[in-house]
Design a protein around this nucleic acid. Structure first.
Lengths: 148, 148
DNA sequence: CGTGACCATCCGCTGTAGCGGATAGCTCGG
DNA sequence: CCGAGCTATCCGCTACAGCGGATGGTCACG
């Protein structure tokens, strides 16, 4: 175990897919790689071809260059380390889950109304949510704890 | 100020040079790019040619690939972001100064003996050092503070 | 004053990151 | 049913990351 950043098989592909999914939660409206490439160009001035985006998303190319790494990271609003460091990726991913959830207006208003309630009330609501998730066959969510 | 990671002209070259200088403080004993390449190979299993190292150090090539980025970072014991993020680079650089200083045996033993002393004593010693630096015409060192 | 060990530097090559331009499969409105 | 407009996918090309193998220079040793 001298190394700890290897076997990143199709990891990059998965990460890119996740970033896209979070940025465009509505699967129907989600742009294809062509439109995506165009948006990236408009956003960051630097251009990434649709073909190449597809190759990355499907794992056909994996060894990004400094430049494209930065362009992608800036567009998706994640630190460039997201693509390099698994630990950072995990931490960012939990944030991304939240961001994705807040795109759903109903979830957002629940969050807004939850703000300020007492801990006891929040706990009972949490219990209700867990029950609901179980009933609807959603995976339970683990709360991340501090690692000593 | 929409962007903040551009104009990295010969930045990478400078960073690499600094890393080498810190790792091999004695300029006389410092290995050339050939030996350096060999050491990297032994250390990380991955190989980087001496030619390429030279090209990087002289700024002839600058757009590293994910893989080589990781290899270099692991060898020099810095996070890969060191090469990407100026802010991280600055933070790490101050650590590097410390590491370089500790190579000097006398400095190291001062650091060791300072450990455990009361804050008041440390403060007065710091004052003495600042005075000494002024007398010997060395630049004063800024202590980095926490950014809220 | 060889010659062997190190060095920086250059040249030319290979592999692949990254691109532009097909193509074929969809779904829509007319 | 037929194009218009979208899509994913493929192919072949160019540019450059990265390499191996010269070259000539400077020391130290016998």
């Amino acid at each position: 175990m001298t190394d700890q950043s290897e076997e990143s098989a199709g990891e990059l592909a998965a990460k890119l897919a996740r970033l896209i999914a979070v940025r465009y939660p509505d699967e129907a409206t989600r742009p294809g790689f062509a439109k995506l490439a165009q948006q990236i160009a408009e956003h960051s001035g630097t251009k990434i071809s649709s073909t190449y985006l597809w190759e990355l998303a499907t794992g056909k190319k994996r060894n990004l260059t400094q430049g494209t790494l930065g362009t992608l990271a800036r567009f998706f609003g994640v630190p460039p380390e997201y693509f390099l460091n698994e630990e950072v990726a995990a931490r960012v991913d939990s944030q991304l889950e939240l961001a994705a959830a807040l795109r759903n207006n109903r979830v957002r208003s629940i969050a807004l109304r939850a703000e300020g309630l007492s801990d006891e009330t929040l706990d009972s609501i949490l219990t209700m949510l867990s029950q609901a998730r179980k009933i609807e066959k959603l995976p339970p969510l683990e709360e991340p704890g501090e690692a000593p």
